[in-house]
């Protein structure tokens, strides 16, 4: 029983951990650069939560794989094609509004995913989901307030938020695509079918965008290839050269 599920389970855990790792790194790039001090601190704190969650996910991934790889090994010693994060999360930060729009689009999916995982048949996954969902509830609350504040703000902030939404919407669909890994997770009661999360997501996002006076793009075309690892955008490689350079230059350095 454990042999057939271990490979897809490892994949699944990498997807969860790589999502939080890549987004955590992206928003940590704002540290020292955000528009105001409070937002700088908020982004850094959100990054910290996400990196903490990454450690939990990738540690379990390493255990499941059974090849002796720790969370650090997985984070710093894999190359682009081994990453399983959503394409949305590796996109560059853009301006502050674009960063917060990406955060909102992800947080809304992330919270519904974690809420479902609290009932996972895998106890370790259920425990991580229980812990993380508290933090992500807070992330979603802040991202929602910011998207509404900026969308329904000045002419300038409104147009930037609409541009951010138009740019990022083609990356939303990938969150709800189901593949063989997802099917294996559904069969073993580990995780929900991503497609089942879509109606509640559309409702939530629709309500928030309405409150933000923003218009959801008509076209639901979706880029894909991030969670499967088949086709990342060029941005991930550039990000990893920064994130991984120390462990690449001085393998296994510790301090």
């Amino acid at each position: 029983m454990s042999t057939p599920v271990s490979a897809p389970l490892f994949e699944y855990l990498c997807r969860m951990g790589d999502n939080t790792l890549v987004l955590g790194h992206r928003i940590s790039e704002w540290c020292g650069h955000a528009p105001v001090l409070e937002e700088d601190i908020a982004l850094a704190n959100t990054a910290l939560d996400l990196i903490g969650q990454t450690t939990l996910w990738l540690d379990v991934a390493g255990e499941v794989e059974g090849a002796g790889r720790t969370a650090d090994k997985l984070a710093f010693h894999r190359d682009v094609w081994d990453f399983r994060n959503l394409l949305l999360l590796e996109q560059p930060n853009g301006d502050f509004g674009q960063t917060m729009m990406r955060q909102f689009l992800f947080d809304a999916w992330h919270l519904s995913q974690l809420t479902a995982l609290k009932g996972s048949s895998n106890e370790q996954i259920a425990a991580i989901a229980e812990k993380s969902s508290k933090e992500v509830t807070y992330h979603l609350e802040r991202a929602t307030d910011t998207v509404i504040g900026l969308g329904d703000g000045t002419e300038e902030s409104h147009s930037r938020m609409q541009a951010a939404l138009d740019l990022l919407w083609p990356y939303v669909g990938e969150m709800f695509l189901s593949d063989d890994v997802d099917a294996a997770m559904v069969d073993t009661g580990i995780a929900p079918d991503p497609a089942t999360l879509r109606p509640a997501y559309d409702k939530l996002v629709g309500d928030v965008l309405t409150a933000a006076t923003l218009t959801k793009p008509q076209d639901d075309f979706a880029h894909k290839g991030g969670k499967s690892g088949k086709r990342h955008s060029e941005h991930l490689g550039h990000m990893l050269t920064q994130m991984q350079w120390l462990q690449r230059a001085y393998p296994d350095a510790t301090w």
């Binding site: 910290l48 939560d49 990196i51 903490g52 450690t55 812990k131 993380s132």
Partner: peptide, 8 residues
């Protein structure tokens, strides 16, 4: 038990 998963 940790307070926050990333708390240093």
């Amino acid at each position: 038990t940790p307070t926050y998963s990333g708390c240093p």
